[in-house]
Design a protein around this nucleic acid. Structure first.
Length: 421
RNA sequence: GUGGGUGUAGCUCAAGUGGUUAGAGUGCCGGGUUGUGGCCCCGGAGGUUGAGGGUUCAAGUCCCUUCACUCACCCCA
């Protein structure tokens, strides 16, 4: 019989890792709440049309990376490859804009993309997303970036860089696209195969092609930042000014092009060089046309996504205690002692004191070993001798000290000891 | 989808050019102590060498096929 295993690119998150996951999540929740964000949870399965319309038909995600299937009859469904589309869908569907002009939302959960797995890339991966809807002011761009960098700093992430760019609005970007296509016309034969394809699919992508000859050619092309309209460039200036108010270091990367069609104006990425080929640990940007494009009101938006697994890989947390250890382990010897131990052990749990015992009736030595392995603070030794004398031995495992306590008062004594530390 | 690397005990890895019964560390279980953890000492369990086929007197080792993992390209978190 063959073993049944996880499918390619999917991972179990095992008990010794979940503490770290919770630590990251708790920090995100606390900090995001402080910035006025509320949690939203949306389904991981959506109608395929949602992603086609928001992310863009000709993007890699939609063209070849989605888990799409036909549900029984004829409806096409897709496991979400990213969160923003779902959040906006919910925002429109429940008319959240009618309750408040401004909505600040975050969500944490799994995303799915069917790519070849490699370091820092999985087919099921997790993201922490934040979206601010209804604010056009460039200060919110900076505030969101401030929240992101503050969060990364709080969870102990260093050696990361912030890169920003402006992609222009729908109008100036499409003008720019045209000028790039014109520029590349006639030079096709010197471009790599991918870039020849990009001319029709996504000409801006030629900018970050790693092939030497393509880089040479595109070097002389007009830059997006020189091309954007006054409104967009004004917006970008204000974002930069606001970032400087908080001394957030950033680098302008005019070649940064984001992979989703809906981005406009401000785009940003937090990168590292410690993760191999996957250098982006967080990315985001403004998407002022998306809400309307998905059938909602004409509302501005901006958001970011943090790659959970990539973040975890970078955060060193060896000094922190992530798992709860039992405060008391009861080593019981013999029938009568086990019965007493069982009652006592569970009474402590009901009082909120983590306690453990052994049900196998093994030797005291092996029970002590288990208590040690669990890193229990105290061990209560309860045997026939103690039962007969109406007492028990209470051992402090850290200090290796031990004392005899009255059996009738053990509950009270143990609780006091534990509270004293 | 394309290319490289790697598959041996739960985990990390050994086994010159093919050659007895595939080893070690760690972890697990037990003993050394009739009822006391860690350190130390001793013992035990645990393997279809990823799978299938081929060459050979003989394959963990060589050849073919296949699968898995992994890194990279593309793209992205």
């Amino acid at each position: 019989m063959d073993k049944i295993t996880t499918i390619k690119g999917f991972k179990d998150i095992l008990p010794d890792e979940t503490g770290k996951w919770q630590y990251i999540e708790e920090n995100a929740r606390r900090i995001f709440a402080c910035f006025g964000f509320s949690e939203i949870r949306t389904p991981i399965l959506e109608r395929t049309e949602l992603f086609k319309r928001s992310i863009g038909e000709s993007t890699d995600i939609v063209e070849k990376e989605m888990y799409t299937f036909t549900d029984r009859g004829d409806e096409s469904l897709t496991l979400r490859p990213e969160a923003t589309a779902s959040v906006i869908r919910a925002y429109i569907e429940h008319a959240l804009y009618a309750k408040d002009n401004i909505a600040k939302l975050y969500t944490i959960g799994p995303m799915f993309r069917r790519e070849r797995p490699q370091k820092g890339r999985y087919r099921q991966f997790h993201q922490i997303n934040a979206e601010a809807l209804g604010i056009e002011d460039p200060r919110i761009d900076a505030e969101l970036i401030l929240m992101l960098t503050h969060f990364l700093d709080q969870v102990g992430l260093s050696e990361v860089a912030l890169e920003i760019n402006s992609l222009g609005c729908i109008r100036c970007r499409s003008d720019f696209k045209k000028s790039i296509v014109t520029f590349l016309k006639g030079k096709e034969k010197d471009l790599c195969e991918d870039c020849r394809r990009r001319i029709t699919t996504n000409p801006l992508r030629v900018f970050d092609c790693k092939v030497q000859t393509c880089a040479e050619i595109i070097k002389d092309a007009p830059g997006l930042l020189d091309f954007i309209c006054t409104e967009c460039s004004d917006h970008f200036e204000k974002v930069k000014d606001s970032l400087q108010l908080f001394n957030i270091p950033f680098r302008i990367n005019p070649k940064m092009v984001r992979g989703l069609d809906y981005y406009t104006k401000t785009a940003f990425e937090v990168t590292t060089n410690l993760l191999g080929a996957q250098n982006a640990i967080a990315g985001g940007g403004r998407y002022d046309a998306l809400v309307k494009h998905l059938g909602g009101p004409d509302v501005a938006g901006i958001g970011f996504a943090i790659g959970f697994e990539r973040l975890l890989a970078l955060v060193s947390m060896k000094d922190k205690q992530f798992s709860d250890v039992p405060q008391l382990f009861i080593a019981a010897l013999g029938e009568a002692a086990q019965k007493k131990a069982f009652v006592f052990c569970n009474r402590l749990k009901l009082k909120g004191i983590p306690s453990e015992m052994d049900y196998t009736g093994k030797s005291l030595k092996s029970q002590m070993k288990r208590a040690d392995k669990l890193e229990s603070l105290y061990v209560l030794i309860l045997g026939d001798k103690e039962i007969a004398e109406n007492s028990a031995e209470l051992r402090n495992m850290r200090k290796s000290t031990q004392e005899t306590v009255e059996l009738d008062r053990i509950e009270e004594i143990v609780i006091r000891k534990i509270q004293e530390g």
